Structures are given as C-alpha cells and as structure tokens.
Simulated scan of single mutants.
Amino acid sequence: MGHSRTDTTADEKGNTGLVNYLPKQLPAEYQTIGNALATLQDNPATLSDFARNVGLPI
C-alpha cells in the first residue's frame, strides 16, 4: 500500500495529527496497516518492527 497524496502532503507539513487520523479512515481490510502506520508515526524507532510485520526485507 502506498501513501495517499493527502497523507504524504500532511506528513511533509509536519501535521502528525492528520497523518495519524487518515489511516483510521481506511476500509476494514486495511485497518491493520493503518494502525501500524500510526504506531510508526508516533514512534519512528519501531521501523524495524513495522518492516518485519508488513513483510519487508530488513
């Protein structure tokens, strides 16, 4: 799943509230990744956990 244009723009402007809100608006089948993105935004130190949980090579 890629970033939406709104999500990327909000992140670039430092609007973390919006960045955390947008994943919660995803359809039910994307809630797991949305929650993972919100956690990553809140704590960037979890990047390796995020990558592992979404199947990215680390």
Rank of each mutant, 00 (worst) to 15 (best):
T9S: 05
P44D: 12
A38R: 14
I33V: 14
T32M: 11
A36W: 04
L18Y: 01
L22M: 08
A51C: 08
D7P: 00
S4I: 03
A36F: 06
P44W: 13
A38F: 01
D11S: 09
A51F: 02
R5A: 08
M1R: 13
T6Y: 04
S4G: 15
N15C: 03
Y21I: 02
S48H: 02
N15Q: 11
L18T: 11
T16A: 04
T8D: 10
A28I: 09
G34D: 05
D11K: 10
T8M: 07
A51G: 03
T32N: 15
D7C: 09
G14L: 05
T16Y: 11
L26F: 07
L56Y: 11
A45Q: 11
R52S: 14
Y21A: 13
I33Y: 12
L22R: 12
L40A: 09
K24G: 15
P27V: 12
T32H: 13
T16C: 10
A36I: 02
G2W: 03
A10P: 13
G34P: 07
N53K: 08
F50P: 01
N20W: 01
T46P: 00
G14I: 03
D11C: 06
F50A: 09
Q31W: 12
A36Q: 09
R5P: 00
V54E: 11
G17V: 01
V19M: 03
P57G: 09
L18Q: 07
T8K: 14
N20L: 14
H3C: 05
G55K: 08
G17N: 13
Q25H: 05
E29R: 13
N43D: 15
A45I: 01
D7G: 06
A38T: 15
K24Y: 06
D49I: 10
A51V: 00
A45R: 06
H3S: 09
Q25S: 11
M1D: 01
S4R: 07
N43G: 04
A38Y: 02
T32Y: 12
N15M: 10
T9W: 02
S4P: 01
R5K: 12
A28L: 08
D49G: 06
N35Q: 14
A51T: 02
Q41M: 08
G34L: 10
R5D: 06
N35R: 11
Q31R: 12
L18C: 01
K13P: 00
K13C: 00
L40W: 12
P27A: 13
G2D: 07
M1Q: 10
E29K: 14
G17I: 01
R5I: 05
T46A: 11
T9V: 05
I58C: 00
V54D: 03
H3R: 09
P23H: 03
L26A: 10
N20R: 13
R52A: 14
N43M: 07
